[in-house]
Design a protein around this nucleic acid. Structure first.
Length: 670
DNA sequence: AGAGTGAACCTTTTT
DNA sequence: GGTTCACTCT
């Protein structure tokens, strides 16, 4: 566990004063550097853990890092240490600076679905229809927020372009409505702290004094807003450590700016650059293939990964007739390999470009009774019943949350239908207030029937009563009371397709509640609003031993595979139009696709197999496929071709024999 | 109001 | 091929 650091890693850990950029190639131990550096700061330098913050992009990465730091420290030695995602850090800042920002306690966090719904609403109001453009506009707004660009600036920069001008106008309205609902979206969690710091130097100073040592993981994935935040927090003190790899930048389509790595050099002239080039993961052959492939990209920083884990087996390229044969063949090869090598299912991963590619593999795995783990299915929080209850909780914490209001006002039935809601909504926008507050305005009675108004009042009074209880008593008790009030389990039983489905849903709610109860126990001071906010930032509920997935084959997209490693990797569908994806060919973003392939290849420790089909069904039509250009970019000496239509000529047979011999020699030499 | 039908769509997706 | 969404029918 406490393996010695190599000299470069050690240098990275010990570099204390001033900013440093650790260029960490795939498998070079970057997480180890961050965790060891945190331990070093606390144990050797006597830094108060409360003054250290490590930031990651995913909950999973944060969890993993927390666990690894904990192992390095004595009990309680890390008290107050902050290891979180960018978004959670932003949430904490916003929560502590609520008044200055003009938000009220219990504010809601709108997720993607909420934001799309709001935008559709706004577009309907403005143009009578949203014409399926809501997502595109939201994407644009998100881009602006990620780039730290405000609505007025966006409008100026749109420069009369009709599409952009519309989006910019919507951006303004969208923000305005969020504020009315006492809500923020995901991007706001980054952007608002940035704006706050820019406008209030005294607040920034407070936070700079709190976070004296900042460490950022996967730095190549930062967007402009995140980098601004990092820069501001770092300030003149400059104790910034960032770890990243420009070759693994695969999120530029989401606003990530790998250029931020180069910008560091300009923004921090005393930047220390440390390269980690020894790979502890893969065989030389796999690494050589990865290096050869990625050499086709332009680079900000040059680096050359090496490994001393042996030469390794050739990389296999399998050609199959079609996508069904691909799944069948890969699975039977996997079984064969497992049998011969006495490995476990969890030693294997099947990686692909798009989620839809998983279907055939799932089928084949099920047919062979092979247990598998599918990453990236529906998130727990996407289930209707979970969304319902989350909406109730959001409304309790923040009655002005219109999305939550609309979602559950008539679930279960309260005889408040679209007609009533329509009138209420009209009145609310007239009064520039939230739906909830509009219910209490006197003028409403003129727009609604007495019965409808009465029903609304009953509902709102009930919410207020519960909200009061939640604030003064135990939030968890209040939640249970609320569920009993609405008799939600019964509603699920009455409205489900069948009993099994209803029971599954009831189970999900139970799981949600037990999670909240656990969370409330560990942080007794947290308000209902805080609990709900934390939940919103999670993709999935964390299980006790969630890393222990059991003995299962992993199935995931290349994006989801970043940061992971497996002894045996199958990279499937390596075809033009798939990897690289068709859109990337059209948009001329081949380099990112190449990095994606690079990420896939570098996941493998011992064995790597690529496959491509000659024909594949796409959108129901059978189409001819061409092997990916990336296969041509691999070192042909390290490849071994098999499959349909591939005859092994004597020359190749000889080569394979020699390769085999070389391998044996290598093994003997150890 | 909820189910049923046809038309349009379609990468990746940390939060 | 499969999903999502709007509109229509009962």
């Amino acid at each position: 566990m406490q393996a010695a650091l190599n000299p470069r890693q050690l240098a990275a850990v010990k570099h204390l004063d001033g900013p440093s950029l650790v260029l960490a190639g795939a498998g070079s131990g970057k997480t180890r550097v961050i965790t060891r550096k945190i331990a070093y700061l606390i144990q050797r330098c006597g830094i108060d853990p409360r003054n250290i913050a490590a930031v990651t992009f995913t909950n999973k990465a944060a969890r993993e890092m927390k666990g690894r730091v904990k192992k390095l420290l004595e009990k309680n030695q890390g008290k107050g240490l902050r290891v979180s995602t960018f978004h959670t850090l932003g949430l904490d800042i916003i929560r502590r600076e609520l008044e200055i920002l003009g938000y009220k306690a219990g504010f809601s966090i709108y997720d993607n679905t909420d934001s799309v719904a709001l935008l559709k609403e706004l577009m309907k109001k403005a143009f009578g229809d949203h014409g399926n453009q809501a997502e595109k506009n939201l994407w644009q707004i998100s881009n602006w927020k990620s780039a730290f660009i405000q609505p007025d600036q966006a409008l100026k920069e749109a420069n009369g372009d009709p599409v952009l001008s519309t989006a910019a106008t919507l951006y303004e309205q969208y923000n305005h409505h969020l504020k009315t609902y006492n809500a923020v979206d995901f991007d706001d969690l980054i952007m608002l702290p940035g704006l706050l710091f820019r406008e209030h130097p005294e607040v920034l100073e407070r936070w700079q004094n709190r976070i004296r040592y900042l460490l950022v993981d996967e730095y190549q994935d930062t967007n402009t807003a995140q980098y601004e935040l990092v820069k501001m927090l770092t300030g003149v003190r400059g104790n910034l450590t960032v770890v990243g790899d420009d070759d693994q930048s695969i999120y530029t389509w989401r606003g990530a700016q790998p250029e931020n790595m180069a910008l560091l050099k300009e923004d921090f002239p005393n930047l220390e650059i440390i390269k980690l080039e020894q790979n502890y993961r893969s065989t030389r052959r796999i690494l050589h293939a990865a290096n050869t492939l990625i050499a086709n990209n332009a680079h900000i920083f040059e680096k050359k990964l090496w490994s001393d884990l042996g030469h390794g087996d050739p990389i296999r390229i399998i050609r199959v007739a079609n996508e069904e044969a691909e799944a069948e063949q890969i699975i039977s090869e996997l079984l064969h390999h497992k049998f011969v090598n006495r490995t476990k299912f969890k030693d294997y991963a099947i990686l692909y470009r798009g989620n839809h590619q998983s279907r055939l593999f799932e089928r084949a795995l099920r047919e062979h009774d092979i247990p598998y783990y599918l990453s990236g299915g529906t998130s727990f929080f996407a289930y209707a019943e979970v969304k319902d209850i989350m909406s109730y909780l959001r409304l309790l914490a923040n009655p002005e949350d219109d999305n939550a209001f609309v979602r559950i006002i008539n679930t279960p039935r309260r005889e408040i239908g679209p007609g009533t809601l329509e009138k209420l909504s009209l009145y609310a926008s007239e009064r520039n207030s939230s739906l909830f507050n509009a219910c209490f305005e006197l003028g409403l009675a003129q727009h609604l029937s007495a019965r409808a108004a009465e029903r609304l009042h009953i509902f709102c009074d009930w919410i207020l009563e519960l909200a009061n209880k939640a604030e003064n008593g135990e939030p968890v008790e209040t939640i249970h009371l609320m569920l009993r009030n609405i008799d939600y389990d019964q509603w699920l039983l009455d409205n489900g397709k069948d009993e099994a489905q209803a029971n599954r849903r009831i189970g999900n709610i139970k799981e949600l509640l037990s999670w909240i109860a656990r969370m409330a126990k560990t942080t007794p001071e947290a308000s209902l609003g805080e609990l709900v906010a934390r939940l919103t930032l999670l993709d999935t509920l964390e299980r006790e031993n969630e890393d222990d997935r059991g003995d299962q084959v992993s199935l995931m997209t290349l994006h989801a595979a970043k940061g992971l490693e497996f002894p045996n990797v199958y990279l499937v569908g390596v075809e033009e139009e798939l990897l690289p994806h068709r859109n990337s060919i059209e948009n001329d973003t081949i380099e990112e696709e190449r990095r994606l392939a690079y990420v896939g290849i570098t996941r493998a420790q011992k064995n790597l197999t690529l496959s491509f089909a000659q024909k594949r069904k796409r959108y129901g039509e059978v189409a001819d496929c061409t092997p990916s250009r990336f296969i041509d970019e691999l070192p042909s000496d390290d490849l071994q071709w098999t499959g349909e239509g591939v005859k092994m000529d004597p020359q190749e047979r000889l080569q394979r024999g020699q390769a085999h011999l070389a391998n044996l020699r290598e093994m003997l030499a150890k």
